[in-house]
Design a protein around this nucleic acid. Structure first.
Lengths: 164, 164
DNA sequence: TATTGTTATACTCTATAACTATA
DNA sequence: TATAGTTATAGAGTATAACAATA
């Protein structure tokens, strides 16, 4: 039943419903060990923390980086198009762009052909900044390699290629 | 610079800063394609959505499942121990346990040896319920297999084994 | 002094709904 | 009527700080 739980022999029953453990006593995860979702979640947390730390000097978070990268590679996209491509709610993208526009990295240009929509572009400053962000992101990616190994990282990207 | 952007030949310039695209026109991700974090994040979202849907009939979310599983495998643990093991803030675990206790799945038993702490146990009802949750979670895991392939899922678990 | 559980606050992210101005 | 952008709200999840009881 509790196949990965610490052996009972390592526990000292306190006699009052509390199970005391010594430091060498591992806490078992049981069924969690076989779940891809649990491992993926823990890995994702590690990756984001390293990304945030590595790009901390420029104050750019993963989602902001993804927005800047997509705009940089596809200038003129509408907010809807960016939101759909990245799986971000359009309501949330509004605030993300407010922040990036306030930092003079992105500009919204009103479209004349469809006056409801905005064409998104990087500013000149945004282009320069993104180049730096990409260098730092590459550094972060090397941290991932160090953590799980170069071959494993590449295998991971292959396995998950369908989710981009 | 924008190596994965759609070729310019596929774009129709609108002449006002807007770039129109036809339906076959793919939006490039550029640097994002090489980032493990982006793929892992998208995969994790897919996995959690399937988990929440598959365990929707019993109204159990991934974090709740992980808490129940660890308590089931290690009865008598303190809240601090569970929080540390799963990487959850102890302040957040309070609310999670309030909810699970309200549903009669978990009970907090006051420790007599250390009157600050609570020993956590599943109720009889909690044991029965967890068995069902595990069957549904296994079903979810089969969905993951169908999505990325049996061999890839196992490779993934091996690569990420260190993050549990 | 330090720790356990608790309460509270703030910020991020997700999920909606509704509003406006256009189409 | 439908869509793009916006505003607002509510619920998770994360990150802190502070407090009472206890060690």
């Amino acid at each position: 039943m509790t196949t990965t739980a610490a052996p009972t022999s390592l526990r000292r029953r306190a006699g009052n419903g509390t199970t005391r453990r010594n430091e060498a006593d591992e806490i078992g995860l049981d069924a969690l060990v076989g779940h891809a979702g649990y491992a993926v979640r823990r890995f994702q947390i590690w990756i984001f923390q390293d990304f945030i730390k590595t790009l901390g000097e420029v104050d750019i978070r993963p989602t902001q980086y993804s927005v800047l990268t997509v705009i940089g590679a596809n200038p003129g996209l509408s907010q809807m198009a960016v939101a759909k491509r990245l799986g971000i709610e359009r309501a949330r993208l509004v605030h993300l762009l407010d922040s990036l526009e306030g930092r003079k990295l992105v500009k919204r240009i009103k479209s004349k052909s469809d006056r409801r929509s905005h064409a998104l572009h990087l500013t000149a400053q945004g282009e320069t900044a993104l180049a730096k962000f990409k260098r730092l992101a590459a550094e972060h990616e090397r941290h991932v390699e160090e953590k799980i190994g170069k071959a494993n990282r590449e295998r991971l990207l292959q396995i998950l290629a369908g989710f981009t």
